[in-house]
Nucleic acid binder design. Sequence first.
DNA 1: CGGCAAATTGACACATCTCAAAGCCTGTGG
DNA 2: CCACAGGCTTTGAGATGTGTCAATTTGCCG
Lengths: 243, 243
Amino acid sequence: MDQERLTPLVKALSLRDDISDQERSTILGLAYRPRTFSRGETIVKDHSAPNDSCLILDGYAARAAVMSDGKRQLTAVHVAGDFVDLHALMLRVMDHSVVALSDCHVAFIPHRQLIKITEEQPHLGRLFWLSTVVDAAIHRAWLLCIGRKSPAQHVAHLICELDIRLRAIGAASKDSFPFPITQSELSDMLGLSLVHVNKTLSRLREMGDFTWDGTTVRIVNRDRLVEFSEFDPTYLSLIKTPR
Amino acid sequence: MDQERLTPLVKALSLRDDISDQERSTILGLAYRPRTFSRGETIVKDHSAPNDSCLILDGYAARAAVMSDGKRQLTAVHVAGDFVDLHALMLRVMDHSVVALSDCHVAFIPHRQLIKITEEQPHLGRLFWLSTVVDAAIHRAWLLCIGRKSPAQHVAHLICELDIRLRAIGAASKDSFPFPITQSELSDMLGLSLVHVNKTLSRLREMGDFTWDGTTVRIVNRDRLVEFSEFDPTYLSLIKTPR
DNA sequence: CGGCAAATTGACACATCTCAAAGCCTGTGG
DNA sequence: CCACAGGCTTTGAGATGTGTCAATTTGCCG
């Protein structure tokens, strides 16, 4: 078990507050179970009651909820450093699944150690808390998109969100980032039909503010994307301040 | 300042785990600023950076996000005992507003004391954490509703959610609870136009599984509502278990 | 080259929005 | 007690948006 592999978590937490050396070594000293998932696999099952919480080391994952007839809604996208399943630590029973959008490496960290951190290193515990609160903020932003924005604005908003999150963790270059998903998966994020998403994309292509070939997004005009989608990064809380 | 008025919080936290006598008295000993809001007033402003977090003592509130053209999306409803604005403790800057759906009493609790609780009474701190994680779960349930369920299913789901939450805190009788909002507010929860909501309600009225006169909801056939809306209460985490 | 998943397109049905008007209810002032 | 104003609800009609179905095209991999 390579201890250094939890560095994405240190990096992610450092985005929002300073991490002390002790906190850093606590994190890097956590025992974890590494696992690899291929694109499409389920990482955490709905209704399960996990004894560990998982963290994305690299790749993309998403939270998913499904209906009895198979209709699916994705409720958030997660990237390297995201402590995706911290929710299970408090909820105990999963209210949704976590699925791999791409091949990805995931670390499973036993709850016992996380509870211990809340007891002994409250500041670090608060940063864990923060990460779940940011997830809630992401859900709210998505609710506004799905409820009140046009499909085109919604797609643009999603691209702005990923762009800023990936640049924050150093996983995007100045104007492009990997986004290797299908239009069907995108339709499950947007709450729309596949066909409609396809038509929305072709209209966005005409607007020309970004390109996406199913693999990589290239930002052509970030300002226009931000304005068009009414993207306000406040909800991501990407500000380094004592918490 | 009547210390006893924070009992709704004790009651709410007790739904999900046992509260020790010490924790109980810590909560009841919290200094707070009580305030009254009338229906429609803003309790916490979007983009503000509060130094206290608010808790609903009675009445209904909602989280709200708005677009530049005035379109509004409500992302959750909150009731007595809900520590609505705990999110601000970690986020620091609000990504949404909290508005009063009815006249309501609210307690504002300084962040200083809450941080102290995370330092000195980690179990109580975790229950605060839990309450924000349940909020996230509610957002996910709403995302599934708005993205993939029919408007009628969505309304039915909302009624099931409020029914179970209000019964849990003893604010609903066996088959009815107050729900004093306008169809326009409901449309902002559903992400639909007012006219369409009105037509959806008249179809639901024909189904006859509940009644709502704008003031009070009466459940006529709870089983059918649950089945129709595919309501699964797991997400509310209403299970008393060590956390 | 053939096979398969994904993307694209067109046609048509259905859902939803907007605009506009009418009806209903309640509180207030005369 | 009545008349009225204002907010909310209800209804209808027509314009748009979105879903479904089905066929075709594209791109990749063996």
